[in-house]
Nucleic acid binder design. Structure first.
Lengths: 363, 363
DNA sequence: TTGTAAGCGTTATCAA
DNA sequence: TTGATAACGCTTACAA
C-alpha cells in the first residue's frame, strides 16, 4: 500500500505492526487479528490488511509475540547423541512433521558428556523459551537442582520411560519383541544363545533382556542368562562384544543383540575372524535401521515404527499443550515387527543334518 | 515489592527480575547488570544479588531479553534431510559444540520435499527469531519471494557453496580428493572406471566429478567420462546404480562413488549378484561415515573432517555475529584424506598375473 | 466489527 | 556504582 509515504517503513527498517496498520488504515489490533483470528474481521478489511502485510513483507516479531502471549511455540527434543544417529533421526523426523504442522518449532538438544549441555537445556526451559519437551532418553536434564520435570511444561517420553508419575510415554512392546527375536533363533534350532546388551539399566535394555531371558527359559535353555556381553548400542561395542565372544571355549550359535549397530559391529568382527554368518553363528538385531539392509549378510532384526513413534509422541504433547486443565493424556504402546533376513539360519549341527538330508534326497 | 513477605514470588509464579530486585534490596537494573556485566557491580552487591537469584531460582525470560536486546541468540542450521543422517550429524555436532560454548542455541531445520518446510524456516528468520544461519545445502530456503539471504542475518555455507557474493563457506578440497580417490584406482592398475554421481548440479557432485574426470583423462583413460551413473548419495540409489552396472556388457573394474552410502549400496548389490569385491570390482567411497568400517568389505574412502567442518563454519558465523561492521570473514578450505581399506585392489587381469608371479616365486 | 491502551519482563539510557 | 524510567513490538481486555 503506497499512497501516503508515512505508511512505509523508514529506510531499511523491518516493517512492524504499526507500519502495516498505517498502510492499511486500521489499528494495530486489527492487523494482529487479521493474522490470528481472520474470521473476526470483515472480509474487505481483512483483505486490505493482508495486502498491506504482503506489500511490506511483514512478519511478526516472534519475541514480542512470545512475551505478550506467554508462549514460545517451541518444543525441545532431548536426545542422547552418543547412542542415536541412525535410529533416532527418523523418530525426530516424525516429531518434526507433526509439530511443525501445528506451528511449533523443534529444538533438539543432546545430552552427552559435558555438564554444560544439561545446563543449557534446563536454562532454555526455565527461560520460558520452551513450551513442551519430548525426551528420547531415559533421564531428563537436571542442573543445579532444577529439573525439566519441575519446570511446569508438559513432558512426554518417546522410546524411553521415566519413573515420574503421570508422565506419558510412547513405547514399543520391547519385551515382547525381544521374546520374538529370541524365539526366532530357538525355532531355527539354536540351543545355546548369548545376549549383547545396550546400556545397563536403560529401560529398553532392561525390557529386551527380560524378553530374551523369558524366551530362553521357556525353551528350557540353561545358562543363557549368564551369557551376556556388555554393550552400549554402538558398532564399536558390538565389535568389542564379538572379541569377547571369540574367546569363549564353547561358543553359542545364536546371538541376540539389543540394537542393530551392536549386531552389525558384532557380525563384522566375527566374520572377519573367519566365522560364517549364519552358517556358524546366527545374529539378530533390534531397531530396523537402514544399514541393516546393506551389511553382509543382511540383518534379521526387529523393525520399530520410527516415524510413528515420534509422531505419536508429538500428538500426545500437543494434547497436553492444548489441554484446558491438567487432563492427563495416556501413554501408548506401538508394535515392532520381526524382519527375517540373511543373518539367521539353523545352527551348525542342524545345518549338517540338513545337508545330509539334501544329499540323500539327491541320490 | 519490598521488605519481607512481599519479596517472594506469590504462589507458583515464576520469579521475575523485580522479585529478585526486591529480595536483594536493589533495583532491577542492578539485577540485570549482575548477570550481564558482573564487573560493573561492587563485589558485595553482586554477591547479594546472585544469592537472591539462586534463592529464587530466577532465570531471565528469554523472550523479554530478546525483545529488548534485539537478538535471539539462536542460530538456524539448514539441512537437506534426505541426503544427510550419517554424514551431517557429525558436522552438526561440531557446529553445536562451538556455538553453544558462545551461548547460542541451535535449531536445525530440514528442507526436503514440502514447501511448508521452507516457509517455516524463512518465517523463523524474518520473525527475528534467528541471529544467524548455517546452510549445509546447496540452496537456501526461499518462500514467497523472501530469501534467507536477504533477511539481514549473516549466513555461512558449510560443505556447500552458494553463488552469493561475499557469502563465506567452509569446504573441503572436493576436486582434489576426487582426483586422489580416482588416482588410487588407477595406481592399482584399473583402466576402466565408472563414476556414480551425487545429486546433479550440487557443488560437491560437480567438483567430485570434475576431479574424477581429470584423473581419468590424465591417465589416458578414454570413455571414462561417458561412464557415469546417476545417484543421489543414498544407499538405495547406489543399489540402483549397481543394477545398471550389472547390465553393462563390458564392465569397468573400478567404481568411484560420490558418497559412502552410494558405495555401500553399490557394493552390497554387486556382491549379492555374485561379483567379488575387490577381486572383480574395486569400489571407493567418499565421506568417511561410520558404516564404512562395518560393511563387507570395509570401504576405501575419503575421510572428511566432519566435526571440524562444522566447528569452523560456526566460528566464522560467530565472527560475523560479533563484527562491528560488515567486515567480511573469509572462507576456508579443509582437507580430506584417503583411507585405504579392503574394497579396493588390483583389477582382475593384474590380479591373475600377480597370482602367477607368486606361484612362480613359490617354485 | 474495530479502536484504545495497558501491559508482557527485560535492558539501556540517563541522571544521581 | 546504582536507580528511575523509557522503550522493545506485540496481543488482548475493554470500550465504542
Amino acid at each position: 500500500m503506497t499512497k501516503s509515504s508515512g505508511s512505509r517503513p523508514i529506510g531499511d527498517r523491518r516493517a512492524r505492526i504499526s507500519d502495516v496498520a498505517a498502510a492499511a488504515g486500521v489499528s494495530t489490533a486489527t492487523v494482529s487479528r487479521a493474522l490470528t483470528y481472520p474470521e473476526r474481521l470483515r472480509p474487505d478489511t481483512r483483505e486490505h490488511v493482508l495486502q498491506a502485510i504482503r506489500a511490506l513483507g511483514y512478519t511478526p516479531h516472534e519475541a514480542a509475540r512470545s512475551l505478550r502471549a506467554g508462549e514460545s511455540r517451541m518444543v525441545l527434543v532431548v536426545i542422547a547423541y552418543l547412542y542415536s544417529g541412525a535410529f533416532f533421526s527418523r523418530v525426530i523426523n516424525g516429531i518434526e512433521s507433526e509439530l511443525s504442522a501445528s506451528g511449533y518449532t523443534v529444538i533438539t538438544g543432546s545430552l552427552d558428556g559435558e555438564e554444560g549441555k544439561a545446563r543449557r537445556l534446563v536454562d532454555l526451559v526455565y527461560a520460558r523459551q520452551i513450551d513442551g519437551v519430548i525426551v528420547l532418553t531415559g533421564h531428563v536434564p537436571v542442573f543445579d537442582g532444577r529439573s525439566i520435570l519441575e519446570a511446569g511444561v508438559p513432558v512426554v517420553a518417546v522410546c524411553a520411560k521415566l519413573d515420574h508419575p503421570g508422565l506419558p510415554s510412547v513405547l514399543i512392546n520391547d519385551e515382547e519383541c525381544a521374546k520374538i527375536q529370541t524365539q526366532h533363533l530357538i525355532d531355527l534350532g539354536h540351543r545355546r544363545l548369548i545376549y549383547v546388551s545396550g546400556v545397563e539399566g536403560h529401560y529398553n535394555e532392561v525390557k529386551r533382556y527380560a524378553g530374551y531371558l523369558k524366551s530362553a527359559k521357556a525353551a528350557g535353555l540353561k545358562g543363557s542368562d549368564s551369557l551376556r556381553l556388555a554393550g552400549n548400542y554402538s558398532f564399536e561395542s558390538g565389535a568389542d562384544a564379538a572379541r569377547a565372544f571369540l574367546q569363549l571355549k564353547d561358543r553359542p550359535t545364536g546371538v541376540v543383540c539389543c540394537s542393530d549397530e551392536l549386531a552389525i559391529g558384532f557380525m563384522k568382527t566375527v566374520t572377519g575372524a573367519g566365522l560364517r554368518c549364519p552358517a556358524d553363528v546366527s545374529i539378530v538385531g533390534f531397531d530396523g535401521i537402514e544399514f541393516a539392509d546393506y551389511c553382509e549378510p543382511t540383518l534379521t532384526t526387529i523393525r520399530q515404527p520410527r516415524e510413528l513413534l515420534g509422531a505419536e509422541g508429538a500428538r500426545i504433547l500437543l494434547q497436553e499443550l492444548n489441554a484446558v486443565e491438567s487432563r492427563k493424556s495416556s501413554s501408548r504402546v506401538l508394535r515392532g515387527e520381526l524382519l527375517i533376513r540373511a543373518s539367521s539360519g539353523p545352527p551348525p549341527r542342524l545345518r549338517r543334518k540338513q545337508v545330509l538330508r539334501v544329499a540323500a534326497a539327491a541320490r
